[in-house]
Design a binder for these strands. Sequence first.
DNA 1: TTAATATATTTGCGTAGACGAATATATCAG
DNA 2: CTGATATATTCGTCTACGCAAATATATTAA
Lengths: 119, 119
Amino acid sequence: MNDLSDLFKALSDATRLRVMNLLLEAGELCVCDLESTLGCTQTKISRHMRYLKRAGLSADRKVGRWVFYSVASPKSELQRLALKNLRELVKAEPRAARDIAVLKRRIASGCCVGTNQQQ
Amino acid sequence: MNDLSDLFKALSDATRLRVMNLLLEAGELCVCDLESTLGCTQTKISRHMRYLKRAGLSADRKVGRWVFYSVASPKSELQRLALKNLRELVKAEPRAARDIAVLKRRIASGCCVGTNQQQ
DNA sequence: TTAATATATTTGCGTAGACGAATATATCAG
DNA sequence: CTGATATATTCGTCTACGCAAATATATTAA
């Protein structure tokens, strides 16, 4: 049962859930966009991204001085199911929709330099 | 996002997941049946039951000197969804099926005195 | 009343992880 | 090379838990 409890542990922090919510919505985001969208410190985002990555939930891609994070493609049936369920559960949290609204406003107004030059 | 992260936190321990799995399967179980089915200390089960109860995931009913635990009926849409998803996720864990097999064998051979006199 | 049984709680210890502040590293611009 | 920018890591502190051993409480049996 440890695979499942480890998965839940990785999802048992509000900041990480908010990040996952944004990544599920946006596909790919750099740390500075996560920072400004969620109103968190850079250290805080970075720390949580390391946790998510260790848990196999996120993947990253370095482009110049930016690092773009995304939801990792599932490595097990368990992970696949968990992600599917996460999408569903997150919708029941009002904050998820609010975060996405903020993100969309930020995207519309250009986000950070990296996000615009992406690729 | 805190309701959801608290929920995940309550589910982020293997023993608690194994207990939830048994309760989902059996409906109601006393501490001593959980102990012997999972091969855990009484203290350990008791501690985790308190956690699950605090998180609103389990309910209890006292009968004589036994306490029967069950899955609490959900108090929010979030909890309802979470329980539905938990049923699904737990099936992907081999240990869940093994625990249930042990439980069934124990039920067939009579379980504890309380379980038999239940009601 | 006394003893046994089922469960809960306390105590003491160890570890994981959350946080902010400071610092390190890497990359790019000029 | 120099400075600015994006990200990561380290450090010190604090809290929540996990565990086992011991003890407490409640209920029933004899």
